[in-house]
Write a protein that binds this DNA or RNA. Structure first.
Lengths: 361, 361
DNA sequence: TTATAGCTTGTTAGCGCTACCAATCTTGCA
DNA sequence: TGCAAGATTGGTAGCGCTAACAAGCTATAA
């Protein structure tokens, strides 16, 4: 009677098994696995060893039940690039399953549909919400959430808003860096395809481009700047226009990968080789970037990391919210990176040894 | 002392609150929300009403702790199309969060890397594994899993294996259906781009194509059949070859969307309009299909549904496995659908009224 | 009417973990 | 040496839910 085997066929290792094995109390084991201090180093080592040996791994359900920190997290997205979503989910997923959070996923059509989705989440007992772009940039959605008194975190927000927590990269810097790289490659006639005018990121990315051009003392030829809408087709159309000028740009910087892929197609259609005759670069490093050929040089956001971090942030925020404490909005800025693939080259074509960096030896 | 507010700031509605509100025992409420029979209709209604009113929603952590059916599910994938992954995850996610299952995600490089990943999962205490394609078709992976004595379910398996549970569509039928559709549109010179020779699905899809052609009494011109590898580039190359023949195919059926997108690009490169001069269709309805332009006509698998179902199947299997019962492998076949977008048209071009079905009025 | 079966509800006892507090053991310092 | 303060451990009591059994109830048959 002392130790029943339980209702299950039961062969799972619990914290009690470890405790007995080491000869300490379950509580001590708990402390060790939670990395609390105030455990003698010797004891800790013994417990750790036992954990290894018995292959113990904590039952998340029990933990979140005991700690009461189990939270229901809502994830709201509205037709982002599916590739983005996939990486995003991967990040959210691994983090939230580790912290035992429940996930609720809703999609909506733009900020308009958000109200309904958010109501639904609230009704389902969500404790907080994660916003994927472009929703994260919608002040309208932010306002609704605030009125609902629901904690939330935005991912990849372009617009800095000191009142909302978010995880982003610095779009401005990223766009500048990519532009600088093109200049480094010798390009001076650089075209730009803007993103959807409603997205704040579009503006920021253009500003980054502008800033880098200016700094390099290069003129922006406005006939080299096209309006796109983040879609392949819009990139195709815009690029076709840019490339039809008598003197055409030698490089095109599209504000996202879909448009860049469209631009590559447009170049091909016009009989131009990429990157030999036109360099095309994108932004985001979505699946599209490495699916098409030539694969796209682009800007990579560590989406999965960012998503994971956003879960942790949100959980903190929820905890604070529950205990009535107020919570300072945090803005976590992650590093982007330039991914150079086959769609970019030295202005004179790939025959020239590519100058990896501006050399002035 | 009777009812502490608990360790938390605590404003969550529990099963006890509902019970008190209705005037029954918590157990009865539990029965109602779990849809058990043996509850008087009247009681059930009262409970339901109360659940609504109090906005009660069960704590999954507590439930899975109590039922002991909490399971750790491993998800193993190896570079599938990212678009596939995204939908796949969505399905897995919503199902597993509903059933309170923990998720462990691992990727690996082909079947070779699978062993390591699987060991890792086992060590982490996984109770079962879900295999995404193309891993689901690997008999090698299946063998490892069997040796490990771990329940598993394959998703989108092309090779029928009576010993493993899986959720699929009928690739053969799907490929036939698409081929029939092309024939209906008046195409007779139909090209085909095969998928990666290592993937069983490649073979099956080709067989489906073959069967439909044969049934329609059409010859397959072997110079119209190209070998691809499921990549954009391979589709591009294969299509370029097929379209360079003096009499070229009027339609190309690529075994997946990436290759179809590549084929479209190749056609454009050769100055051919899609679909006016060449129809191109794909398979899978990944994000790629609706990202490129013209958007691709393709075969759609209900990936998200299939993924969700696979979780349920696996959970059943794990339960059986735990209780020592043996488990019959199940093969669930889902319906595919033909998605007609802008990349396909009547053989004579879009000026002809498209014959939606073979008419013999 | 009473026995019998079937239906409906309640009671008890955990699931595995950790918050909280109490108990014990160190250590440093007067 | 004695004692307070700190470090380290253990005990208890639940987190919210449900399996398993027990008890009450209803309808049917004898």
């Amino acid at each position: 009677m002392a130790r029943k085997i339980g209702r299950r066929g039961g062969n799972i290792v619990t914290i009690h098994d470890v405790a007995r094995h080491v000869g300490v109390s379950p509580m001590t084991v708990s402390r060790v696995i939670n990395g609390e201090k105030n455990v003698r180093e010797e004891t800790r080592a013994k417990v750790m060893a036992s954990v290894e040996e018995l292959r113990y791994s904590p039952n998340l359900a029990a933990r979140s039940l005991a700690t009461q920190d189990s939270a229901r997290i809502g994830l709201l997205y509205s037709n982002p690039s599916v590739a983005f979503l996939s990486e995003f989910l991967l990040g959210i997923l691994s983090e939230s399953s580790q912290s035992g959070a429940q996930l609720l996923i809703e999609s909506c059509e733009g900020p308009e549909g958000a109200t309904v989705a958010l109501e639904k989440m609230k009704a389902a007992g969500c404790d907080g919400v994660i916003l994927s772009p472009p929703l994260s940039d919608s002040s309208r959605v932010a306002k609704i959430l605030k009125e609902m008194n629901l904690p939330f975190v935005g991912v990849a927000m372009a617009r800095p808003d000191p009142t909302v927590s978010c995880v982003t990269i610095d779009d401005l810097k990223a766009a500048s860096a990519m532009t600088r790289r093109l200049i480094e490659l010798g390009h001076t006639r650089i075209g730009f395809i803007k993103g959807h005018p409603n997205a704040y990121a579009s503006q920021i990315r253009y500003e980054g481009f502008e800033a880098a051009m200016k700094k390099a003392g290069l003129e922006i030829d406005q006939s080299f700047v096209g309006q796109g809408y983040f879609t392949y087709r819009s990139g195709f159309d815009a690029a076709e226009r840019l490339l039809s000028h008598k003197t055409r740009p030698t490089a095109i910087f599209a504000s996202n990968d879909d448009m860049a892929a469209g631009a590559v197609a447009a170049a091909h259609r016009l009989g131009l080789e990429v990157p030999d005759q036109v360099t095309v670069v994108g932004f985001d490093d979505t699946a599209m970037a490495s699916s098409v050929w030539p694969e796209l040089t682009t800007v990579r956001q560590p989406i999965s990391d960012m998503a994971g971090l956003s879960v942790r942030l949100l959980l903190d925020q929820i905890k604070a919210h529950r205990s009535g404490r107020s919570f300072e909005a945090v803005r976590e800025v992650r590093d982007f990176s330039l991914i150079e693939r086959q769609s970019s080259a030295n202005v004179a074509g790939p025959d020239y040894a590519p100058a990896k960096r501006a050399s002035d030896s």
